[in-house]
Design a protein around this nucleic acid. Sequence first.
DNA 1: TGAATTCATTTAACATGTTAAGTATACTGC
DNA 2: GCAGTATACTTAACATGTTAAATGAATTCA
Lengths: 156, 156
Amino acid sequence: MSKAAGRPGVPALRNFRHSLPMELLKAREAAMSRFRPMLRRHGLTEQQWRVIRALSEFGRIDAGELAKRSFLLAPSLTRILQHLERKGLVLRSTDAVDQRRIVVALTARGRQIFAEVAPESESLYEAIEVEFGAERLETLYGLLADFYATLGDSAG
Amino acid sequence: MSKAAGRPGVPALRNFRHSLPMELLKAREAAMSRFRPMLRRHGLTEQQWRVIRALSEFGRIDAGELAKRSFLLAPSLTRILQHLERKGLVLRSTDAVDQRRIVVALTARGRQIFAEVAPESESLYEAIEVEFGAERLETLYGLLADFYATLGDSAG
DNA sequence: TGAATTCATTTAACATGTTAAGTATACTGC
DNA sequence: GCAGTATACTTAACATGTTAAATGAATTCA
């Protein structure tokens, strides 16, 4: 009825596309629904886990780098770091050279949580790999990376 | 250093995978960064637009159906409908047969906003299609649908 | 060197995501 | 026909997403 008339002369092949952002969201949610309960048992949100993961991999890094690595906006990261600091999982300190920068690192307890969660995460990931197929998963990874590379540079 | 040892005997091909949920998030953000400014100019959030889009396509539907179509959780939809009702874009009424159900429909102003936004959205989408390539985009769609179908049924 | 500008982070305000609990209506079986 | 249960939506509480503005430190350049 209000089916978006399309340009005249262009056959309406596949006008039922469900919008790319939503398909990406659905796929993401399908994956996250596997991880969320496990993370929750450890008292972590998805985003907190992303931060811990990045810190575990890169050691002491400043907040700006951490935001890029964990793909979080600065205001979100600020709050998450406040939470993680209260929980005793990370330590914040100002950079001695550039006093604007905040340097973040895992505490011993933060590293311990990482050591507990990482294997469980890995195991869930492997289950997905088996169910969906490792090859198709690789193809999907490649397309996502291409897509991000193609469109991502225009907006940062 | 803490590179997740992997199972012994299994060569560490591609241990640098950046987590599927995050790759999906990044791709999604790359796409959304194209749409968000336009939606904002119309005073809409992404989720409000999803709701309007679904209502435009399906006419009067109850909140449960609407939640599924727009891929929103019930509590989010409740708030979004309150917002959209205040803005005069949707109308809510209780189903005459089943008084638990809320039936939602666009107002005239809601349909007008859809008519304004839809072509702009379509045009942005077509730009993405051109940049990334229609064929690769189809492949990506297919993989996402497969992925969702494979993993989605276990959790709803 | 000091005013203007840029940069890194934070705060604020509003909207949504997520889980759990609450409320009211419909259904089911006895 | 009513107790028990399931269903549909809402509310509540806390966490994050998003944009704009604020803060304070570094840089630039006249």
